[in-house]
Design a protein around this nucleic acid. Structure first.
Lengths: 345, 345
DNA sequence: GATCAGTTTCAAACCGCTTTGGATAGTGCA
DNA sequence: TGCACTATCCAAAGCGGTTTGAAACTGATC
């Protein structure tokens, strides 16, 4: 059932039917009602392909997810972010098209998506230090929103980010207030922007108390359980081991906990731990009481908001870039406590 | 730069240019070369929207991911599966469009995607017992491939699945061979098809040795760390606790390990554990030596193959439904060993 | 009854490509 | 030289909508 057939059945022109369905004023309410009813009755849906060609809009947003070609890691937060963004798109009649791309091939994909007219805008995932993609997208003239920021980029651009620096600063201060002085940082890969900012927050807090950072207590790794475990083991073997840790993700935190408990230490009493909790649906931080003290910010909510932002930018192309900085909340769980009385090893 | 402009520049008709670019024979090789060169020089990409309208094909595949509306869990394997499927699509010029849908709204989405002509086919995720979606898709006449199977569906349909039953049977037998008799099963939710099959495999192996299953040793939960932990704790508190476990996912396995180690038991010597490893990129099972003994099957590879299957079905609509059953390999890690000598608790 | 503004409706052009059904030129062969 | 045949190219008609510009119809006004 297409527009022409529907019009024929109604004894109207396609023009009128189209206008009736799209809410244009130059059609009488009585015929509009008649058209609407017929459309529903015949279960008419306008053909997306035709709409797209006619209007020149793709009614679709591209999510380009880079995969580091070396290790093929698919960042687990993407799933929840996309679930959030998808809600927004569904509400607004947009499709979400997903490209998983080796990170050395991203340029081509962006140019392609634009030239082919496949999408109206882009969400940029996983920004890095001095990320070249932003300049590229500006050059092409593609509307986009970055999930995160790209330290080093000076020209203004649209982004939505969590205040990673402040979150980690607060978390560090929280530990310092408990008397901890040796605090290990299990960070993500530090060419990723979020990881850079988290380290900055951590360092700021230490500096504010006049504590010199110890490189031995700072690791930068992929955020897997195993890496978290290994990094924690290494630090715990230190002559003056940390009494507290900051971990950049729930998954690292699990490895961290394993390392701690394996040594017969108790999480929260012997060793304090704060993680960053992206509130991933399949990695809940406890259900009633949080297990980990955590800086929490829902990635799914970020997805919702980033998508809204992008749709707004697409609707108002002339407007200035938008930014939104979400604050992570510090939720107190059972994994933190005062520094224990020194004990002999 | 569109086809007409390019044709004009070349002094040719759009027809000829189109044919030259699409490899039709009725154009001389010399002009084809000329056209190709010009296309490259002007960086011409045909407009996807126009192609789609003209050909009547969407050149896109829909992945509909149901979210259980109650608990909003986004299955983490989707991410890797989609990464695999995406590779196939990219190679074949297809787009991947993703819909995240509350599971009570799926019907509408499928009908919509079809009526709007937004996609040429569908990958069905997360099939359940007697899944009604397959019948619906058959009724609509939508090509589709199911990732997994739907026990209870009798009409033939296309699917790609891991042999979950055999994998869990083998895993159980492996434990039985080590002398274990009390084997706990930490399964996923048992309205999901894969979980049903895994339980079946487990029960078959027990039955083959004449061992009666103990309901106390079988749990069916969402596959999160916390649920795994809880389920394991409950079983370990049993009067006659299990000496071995089977866990349905890496994440449950992490919780399971925590429960074990928290009791001062050693993984692999005191308690044996086999997990199912989907080979998710961000949850590696060790890097050199596998930590867990596991039934392993790459979800990403499954994504690649399922996508190929679907494209093939779309290309040959008349052909019979296709099926492919992947075997999981049993990889031996450090988490299994002979049943320990009985000790008093 | 003619005129006019305002309301409804429609025919036709257009979006950018593919594809059908010729037209034209070039070739081999009788 | 003429003819059939092939190779090469093109004009035009789609695909299924939206949108422009004009026509037809309504009352109301003079």
């Amino acid at each position: 059932m297409n527009l022409k057939e529907l019009a024929q059945k109604l004894g109207l022109s396609p023009t009128t039917v189209s206008r009736a369905l799209n809410g244009y004023p130059e059609v009488s309410e009585s015929t509009r009602a008649r058209v609407m009813a017929a459309a529903k009755r015949h279960n008419y849906r306008p053909n997306t392909r035709a709409i797209r060609l006619a209007t020149g809009r793709a009614m679709a947003i591209g999510h380009v997810i880079p995969i580091a070609s070396r290790h093929e890691i698919m960042n687990p937060v993407f799933a929840d972010f996309i679930a959030g963004a998808g809600e927004t798109y569904a509400r607004n009649g947009y499709d979400l098209i997903l490209s998983i791309v080796p990170d050395d091939d991203e340029d081509r994909i962006y140019r392609d998506l634009h030239a082919r007219g496949a999408v109206d805008g882009i969400i940029v995932h996983g920004p890095r230090l001095n990320d070249p993609r932003l300049q590229l997208l500006d050059d092409i003239g593609f509307p986009y929103v970055v999930h995160g920021r790209a330290t080093g980029t000076v020209t203004p651009y649209s982004w939505l980010d969590v205040n990673n620096r402040r979150a980690f600063r607060r978390a560090t201060e929280f530990l310092l207030d408990f008397g901890h002085r040796r605090i290990g940082l299990i960070n993500g890969l530090e060419f990723m922007d979020f990881a850079i900012r988290r380290r900055t927050g951590y360092l700021e807090a230490l500096a504010a108390r006049g504590i010199a950072p110890d490189p031995d207590l700072m690791s930068s790794e992929e955020m897997t359980e195993l890496r978290g475990y290994r990094a924690a083991c290494a630090m715990l073997r230190h002559d003056v081991p940390p009494t507290a840790f900051l971990a950049s993700s729930m998954i690292s935190g699990l490895g961290l906990r394993r390392a701690i408990e394996e040594r017969g230490l108790r999480l929260g009493s012997d060793i304090s731990v704060i993680i960053h909790d992206d509130a991933l649906s399949y990695l809940p931080n406890g259900d009633d009481v949080p297990i980990y003290t955590a800086t929490r910010s829902s990635v799914r909510e970020a997805g919702r908001q980033a998508a809204e932002m992008l749709l707004d930018i697409i609707a108002h192309p002339a407007s200035a870039p938008q930014q939104r900085l979400l604050e992570a909340e510090l939720i107190i769980g059972q994994s933190t406590g005062p520094v224990p009385a020194p004990r002999r090893s």
